[in-house]
Computed example of a mutant assay.
Amino acid sequence: MEYRRLGRTGLKVSTLSFGAWVSFGYQLGVPEAKKLIAAAYERGVNFFDNAETYANGQAEEIMGQALRELGYKREEYVISTKVFFGTGSTAPNTTGLSRKHIIEGTRASLKRLGLEYVDLLFCHRPDPETPIEETVRAMNWCIDQGYAFYWGTSEWSAEQIEEAWRIAERLDLIGPAMEQPQYNIFHRKRVEEEYAPLYAKHGLGLTTWSPLASGVLTGGHFSVKCKYSGGLIPEGTRMTLERYKFLQEKKLVEKAHQLQIVDNLLPVAEELGCSMAQLSLAWCARNPNVSTVITGATKVSQIEDNMAALAVLPKLTDDVVAKIDKIVGGTE
Results as ranks from 00 to 15, higher is better:
residue 310 L to F: 07
residue 275 S to K: 01
residue 267 P to W: 03
residue 311 A to D: 15
residue 249 E to T: 14
residue 304 E to R: 12
residue 244 Y to G: 00
residue 273 G to A: 02
residue 277 A to I: 13
residue 270 E to W: 09
residue 287 N to M: 01
residue 264 N to A: 14
residue 243 R to W: 06
residue 254 E to T: 15
residue 264 N to Y: 08
residue 248 Q to G: 01
residue 252 L to M: 08
residue 250 K to M: 13
residue 287 N to C: 02
residue 290 V to K: 01
residue 276 M to I: 08
residue 288 P to Q: 11
residue 260 Q to C: 08
residue 251 K to D: 15
residue 312 V to I: 13
residue 270 E to N: 14
residue 261 I to R: 04
residue 304 E to I: 14
residue 309 A to Y: 07
residue 262 V to P: 00
residue 289 N to G: 03
residue 292 T to P: 01
residue 302 Q to A: 07
residue 247 L to W: 02
residue 287 N to P: 06
residue 307 M to P: 08
residue 302 Q to T: 14
residue 257 H to A: 13
residue 285 A to V: 10
residue 272 L to G: 07
residue 283 W to R: 06
residue 281 L to G: 09
residue 255 K to R: 15
residue 259 L to F: 05
residue 242 E to W: 08
residue 276 M to G: 06
residue 301 S to A: 13
residue 291 S to W: 04
residue 277 A to Q: 12
residue 252 L to T: 11
residue 266 L to K: 08
residue 244 Y to D: 05
residue 241 L to Y: 11
residue 300 V to L: 00
residue 290 V to R: 00
residue 253 V to W: 02
residue 261 I to T: 15
residue 288 P to C: 02
residue 261 I to P: 01
residue 246 F to P: 02
residue 251 K to M: 15
residue 273 G to F: 00
residue 266 L to N: 07
residue 257 H to K: 13
residue 310 L to G: 12
residue 305 D to K: 09
residue 300 V to C: 00
residue 247 L to D: 03
residue 280 S to K: 06
residue 299 K to I: 09
residue 301 S to N: 11
residue 261 I to H: 01
residue 294 I to C: 01
residue 261 I to L: 01
residue 249 E to Q: 14
residue 288 P to H: 09
residue 286 R to V: 10
residue 316 L to K: 09
residue 287 N to W: 00
residue 295 T to N: 11
residue 278 Q to C: 02
residue 301 S to M: 07
residue 302 Q to E: 15
residue 259 L to R: 09
residue 308 A to E: 15
residue 315 K to G: 03
residue 299 K to W: 02
residue 318 D to L: 09
residue 289 N to I: 05
residue 247 L to C: 06
residue 265 L to S: 11
residue 313 L to D: 05
residue 286 R to S: 13
residue 310 L to I: 15
residue 252 L to V: 10
residue 284 C to Q: 11
residue 295 T to K: 04
residue 303 I to M: 03
residue 314 P to L: 05
residue 250 K to D: 13
residue 270 E to A: 13
residue 248 Q to A: 02
residue 300 V to K: 03
residue 256 A to T: 15
residue 281 L to Q: 11
residue 279 L to H: 09
residue 256 A to Y: 08
residue 244 Y to R: 00
residue 284 C to W: 00
residue 289 N to H: 14
residue 291 S to L: 01
residue 310 L to V: 13
residue 266 L to P: 05
residue 269 A to C: 09
residue 257 H to I: 12
residue 245 K to V: 09
